[in-house]
């Protein structure tokens, strides 16, 4: 058994993953709002919470068949880490990566409405 579609209880795990996504999206939207208001850098604790949320999504989304969502989360997480650890990226790049992730959330949600979508 090496196919994700054959994983027992996959649809229930996917449902729980999506239910938990809401809370994580709120954290990211809060950070995005701060950055859009002209903050010169993301506040430390908020950036940490956002990174944790993205890290969690990046870890499980791909396994559950939400490959693009996982990739966007991984990219946004990497931007936050690059900024907080070495200032190797800009606030604009963090903002863009979070926006890309949130756009992907919308696309994923739209895809779930269609009967042909996904592996569940």
């Amino acid at each position: 058994m090496a196919d994700i579609a054959e994983l027992p209880g996959l649809s229930q795990i996917r449902s729980r993953f999506l239910a938990r996504l809401d809370q994580k999206i709120l954290v990211l939207e809060d950070l995005l709002e701060i950055l859009e208001s002209g903050a010169s850098e993301p506040p430390g604790e908020m950036a940490f919470q956002a990174q944790r949320a993205l890290h969690s999504i990046a870890g499980s989304a791909g396994t559950l068949g939400f490959t693009a969502l996982g990739a966007r989360a991984q990219n946004a997480e990497a931007e936050i880490i690059r900024f907080s650890e070495q200032k190797l990226t800009s606030v604009a790049k963090i903002k863009r990566s979070i926006e890309d992730f949130l756009d992907e959330v919308i696309r994923t949600a739209a895809g779930l409405q269609q009967p042909s979508d996904g592996v569940a």
């Binding site: 996959l10 795990i13 499980s60 396994t63 559950l64």
Partner: peptide, 10 residues
């Protein structure tokens, strides 16, 4: 992450 634990369990 409880989702990862659920995946591993499955």
């Amino acid at each position: 992450d409880p989702i990862i634990l659920e995946i591993l369990d499955a």
